[in-house]
Design a protein around this nucleic acid. Structure first.
Length: 358
DNA sequence: TCGATTTGACCATC
DNA sequence: GATGGTCAAATCGA
């Protein structure tokens, strides 16, 4: 199996920077945990005594102030920097979290799109005869030879933040699973010609290959990576989503219509629905996450699931269940008003594990 | 009713 | 002729 970690040789400094940022983030998270534990203990003590102790209030206020003004921004900055480094190291593509990405920027004939939305090739070579395509001929197209394309291999079907619409499915010769064809939802309204093909290529462990063709030109809904980053701007966001090795995003189930995440996710959700047919079991897995089913016992690497009903229990220790190679581990996390979760077992965090995801 | 999916047909490329 | 990519009518579902 192809190694999921593929840092370019010239990005060793990026890797080092990323490690430094992650270590910094870990230290800050530990500090945050310490503060939260302090707040939690003083809060519970206050409840037990039922006294209005001014000193305790001051301590809590100071702690919250410190969280708001110092630790949380630092932690967010640390992870933001790390993601930025990873993004830059990924060859100019969008932030890739866990998939194997092989960008294929070939020196191929430049693909252009004709006025009727069908692509044609600009080529001076004799072998690439440019042909005019008549729209009213059904199925008329130029077979894709090469283009601005890249490939992702992933163990799960991941949300790339774009709205896709399935337009075809094809049984491929010598392939066990059919290939699914997706185009950008905004193909017609914004002339966005990005497409992708998703095909399951391996049964166990499940592996999916997604080929992307063309760049999005649409002003799409928020991309997944942006969504993650933007959580810092939503003071009321009940959680920060950690993306695990399987890219099982933890989704806020709070139906807040003002949250662009919610509205934008609907389109992605449809994609998952579609891709259920590609990998029903993993789609179920996604669905489990989306519905925050904590009773899940199905194995999945490092799957963090949060009980949906707990996210508004501020300053309260919450239970985080991790599934690691079939062994259910438990660690605790803290959730604050700022929507920050801290994995209690951060000591076990290995930065190299993260790099394997890149 | 409208948007998304399914699926057979069509056509370019190999 | 085989194969793969796309279209679009039919169908589905919210």
């Amino acid at each position: 199996m192809e190694s999921p970690c593929s840092w370019p040789e010239n990005s060793s400094s990026d890797r080092r920077k990323a490690i430094e940022e992650l270590l910094k983030g870990r230290d800050l998270a530990l500090e945050l945990r310490r503060l939260l534990n302090k707040l939690s203990s003083s809060s519970s003590a206050e409840n037990n005594n039922n006294n209005n102790d001014d000193d305790d209030d001051d301590d809590n206020n100071d702690g919250v102030l410190l969280l708001n003004q110092d630790l949380v921004p630092k932690i967010l900055t640390s992870f933001t920097n790390t993601l930025s480094i990873l993004k830059n190291s990924s060859g100019g593509g969008e932030y890739q979290s866990d998939e194997v990405v092989s960008q294929v920027q070939t020196n191929a004939p430049h693909l252009s799109w004709d006025t009727i939305g069908r692509k044609s090739e600009d080529s001076s070579g004799d072998s690439c005869k440019s042909t005019l395509i008549v729209k009213d001929k059904r199925g008329c197209y130029k077979r894709r030879k090469c283009s601005d394309s890249w490939t992702k291999d992933s163990s799960t079907l991941v949300d790339d933040g774009h709205a896709w619409r399935k337009y075809g499915q094809k049984v491929i010769l010598n392939a066990k699973y059919p290939r699914n064809y997706f185009r950008c939802t905004h193909k017609h309204d914004q002339k966005c010609m990005a497409t992708k093909q998703v095909q399951r290529i391996q049964e166990d462990p499940p592996l999916f290959r997604t080929n992307y063709y063309g760049q999005h030109t649409c002003k799409n809904l928020l991309k997944a990576s942006q969504l993650f980053m933007d959580t810092r701007y939503h003071d009321n966001c009940p959680m920060i989503s950690f993306c695990d090795k399987e890219n099982n995003y933890i989704i806020n189930n709070n139906s807040n219509s003002n949250n662009p995440f919610v509205s934008s996710f609907s389109s992605v959700k449809r994609e998952y629905q579609d891709e259920q047919e590609i990998m029903p079991s993993h789609y179920d897995h996604h669905r489990h996450d989306l519905t925050h089913n904590n009773n899940q016992t199905e194995s999945s690497d490092h799957c963090y699931i949060l009980s949906p009903d707990d996210h508004h229990h501020h300053h309260q220790q919450q239970h985080l269940t991790t599934y690691d190679s079939g062994v259910v581990n438990s660690s605790s996390l803290s959730c604050t008003d700022m929507g920050v979760m801290v994995v209690d077992s951060v000591d076990n965090f290995d930065a190299d594990d993260l790099f394997e995801f890149c």
